[in-house]
Design a protein around this nucleic acid. Structure first.
Lengths: 217, 217
DNA sequence: TAGATTGTTAATCGATTAACAATC
DNA sequence: TAGATTGTTAATCGATTAACAATC
């Protein structure tokens, strides 16, 4: 795991850059669908609302080179971003906690397009076990470890109540899971065995609400 | 709107700080529930996984002062953060697009605890109109503007397909909405009339997938 | 050729971290 | 008092932005 981080660093790929690449990709695909074959950094900047110089800096990490006076090949740029993000491959994942958020993530078509294959959900609720969400089967959380092992799952998505996070983390250490996408309210430390991305829905709302003036003002 | 941003800047409140405050708040509430009355910056750092010096820096924006050798009053700190984020007030909001993501946000209890009151959902689907999600009524999107006006709604949550974003933004300009929490795949520019927070689910996945090594390695 | 655009190197900006005096 | 912890000021670090040479 450490080597990967080091490698990303050596390649000068920052987390902010990684976060912006999907945005470029989205507009590049639209641009391609419109029949355009080349795009300049300036145009991509205008479409995404990101500074042109930052667009070029970000693109540089893909090693895709553009032609001065012309721009970048849209297809090559799409391929470059997808390759960098490993979005040209399939990623089998499990989701733990089969509630409303799990439904939302399973239903989120764009992620499927990026290679995310959620192959199973796990829950403790007997009413859910044996059922499915949009065709994704739901199993008893007791089956988590054997399922992950026999299907060589590398990614776990956490959408379960905070109370149960700790025990699930322990169980996951007996699997080949290498990355946890964590939507719970428990912050997970990055561990040498697996990489963690903590999402915090309240963080976005903090910005929203702090920008709302109290009624009196 | 510009004055708000300026004011935040004048108070030295950065976006990263705003994003971390909910995390502190979460652990402070747990700490309080455990019967603790004071907490040191170091302990809060350990709980949240954030550097102690950064914790103190972040706390400083709340104007809550601690006692050397003792720490911060937990209740005062909670109150300070909630006040800063306007989480001590109710915020009526509408959600546009009544799909799986809307269900997840409506079901997300923590947001309710932060004062977010989603009072109505809007959709174009006749099967959804007239129904509800967890008791939140769903209306025809045609009723959006009159509803927001007569209920003085200040916050809109976007969870609709990208194709329809533009027209909804236009409609919203005829309301008192001051903030848009945008979960669509269309990036919205911050406008002088309203503040925007763009969420991008693919951004988190980009970090996850780029940290997964290809099978051969 | 002239000029627009890329890609790299340097400068700036802002956020994080360190140092340390103040204080309980 | 002694020493732990706060809060502020300064230093560092990293990301963004600017400048500009290379090039098509």
């Amino acid at each position: 795991m450490k080597e990967i981080k080091k490698e990303l660093k050596a390649r000068n790929i920052s987390l902010p850059t990684l976060r912006r690449l999907p945005l470029y990709l989205r507009y590049l695909k639209k641009f391609l669908a419109d029949g355009e074959e080349v795009i300049s950094g300036n145009v991509l900047a205008q479409l995404t609302g990101i500074e042109a110089i930052l667009v070029r800096k970000d693109i540089s990490v893909t090693k895709v080179v553009g032609k001065p006076r012309v721009g970048y090949q849209v297809k090559a740029l799409i391929a470059g971003i997808e390759s960098l993000l490993n979005w040209d491959k399939k990623h089998k994942a499990v989701i733990i906690g089969a509630g409303a958020l799990a439904s939302a993530l399973i239903s989120y078509a764009e992620l499927k397009g990026h290679g995310l294959e959620i192959v199973a959900g796990f829950d403790v609720d007997p009413d859910k076990i044996g059922g499915d969400i949009k065709g994704i089967p739901l199993f008893d959380v007791k089956e988590l470890v054997p399922f992950c092992l026999s299907n060589n799952i590398k990614i776990a998505i956490f959408s379960l109540p905070s109370e149960n996070v700790e025990e699930i983390v322990e169980e996951i250490r007996n699997t080949n899971i290498r990355a946890i996408w964590n939507f719970t309210q428990t912050t997970l430390e990055i561990h040498s065995d697996y990489y963690v991305v903590n999402e915090d829905l309240s963080a976005g709302f903090a910005i929203i609400s702090s920008h709302i003036l109290p009624p009196s003002v």
